[in-house]
Design a protein around this nucleic acid. Sequence first.
DNA 1: GGGCATTGAATTGTGCACAACTGAATTGCG
DNA 2: CGCAATTCAGTTGTGCACAATTCAATGCCC
Lengths: 162, 162
Amino acid sequence: MTEQPTATPSDQDFLRLDGQICFALNAASRAFGGLYRVVLKDLGLTYPQYLVMLVLWEHGEMPVKEIGQHLRLDSGTLSPLLKRLEAAGLVRRERSAEDERSVRAGLTEEGSALRARAAEVPRRIVAATGFELAEVVELQARLSRLTAALDAALPLEEAREA
Amino acid sequence: MTEQPTATPSDQDFLRLDGQICFALNAASRAFGGLYRVVLKDLGLTYPQYLVMLVLWEHGEMPVKEIGQHLRLDSGTLSPLLKRLEAAGLVRRERSAEDERSVRAGLTEEGSALRARAAEVPRRIVAATGFELAEVVELQARLSRLTAALDAALPLEEAREA
DNA sequence: GGGCATTGAATTGTGCACAACTGAATTGCG
DNA sequence: CGCAATTCAGTTGTGCACAATTCAATGCCC
């Protein structure tokens, strides 16, 4: 055995492939994080904070819940993050009037002004990838499909706990 | 203006694209983490701990430094992680004889035995992606190229601090 | 209207990532 | 040889991710 050119892969093949693909994704994500860390240092933002600011720059004030839906993050991550942005003077938070459970987050003057200084960030990042725009777009599409598939598969795996 | 069908993208275009690609990668990485969390729960491993075990299963005992090179992680992350694996009885650590600075990490009996129970993990993960094997391989190659490009670009960006 | 489930934010606790630093061992160079 | 630079692991501190819990506000159904 162990000589099937294009036959069904063995558990060994899967194990090695798994080590490669999950690590490749993990490494790419962290490499991105490292680059953003350097590029965003002048702005005083971390990578996740930048993502929140992108959402607010594009859509304006919204409830914490809605930010979480945009970024796939829950209040456990967002609450302290938004507090730090508030302490930095970039974000303003206030309880919603019509629903006292909800907290709306919006930009301060300073937070809005930061958008101009952030304008060059994306171009630098894309340039650093060395990818053509079309390739970036295709990779993004593939990753989104991957995320959707994984999210869909998760409940099925959880159901295995029987 | 704002009507250049295929012309050079504006800063606005980059800003939106940026939000998509960096977020897509981030989201995919976290979706993977969530799936692994469920699948690995029986084994009592976290996702990064599983990556370390994969390295040790494949290559056997090695210095902490070398594990870090495989996984692109430093001692600040690995030291406590290996301690937890040691506390769980899966990993054994000892100072190297010929170089007292180095600590070699290896598998215990129990750690080696866990490999058998982990055998089905990769197949479940790959299945959950809904991707063909060839597509997984190609995605992995693209991500590796991306990581290499980002790592190469990082020093250039750091040099901008002038 | 009263009781009960649901929702939204916040908090707590665990673990990972990384920068900065410490300290000990080793290397290399004059 | 002797001492400075380097290397390796570990620690500390900050921030993110996420599960689990808490608590108040809201919605719902009888």
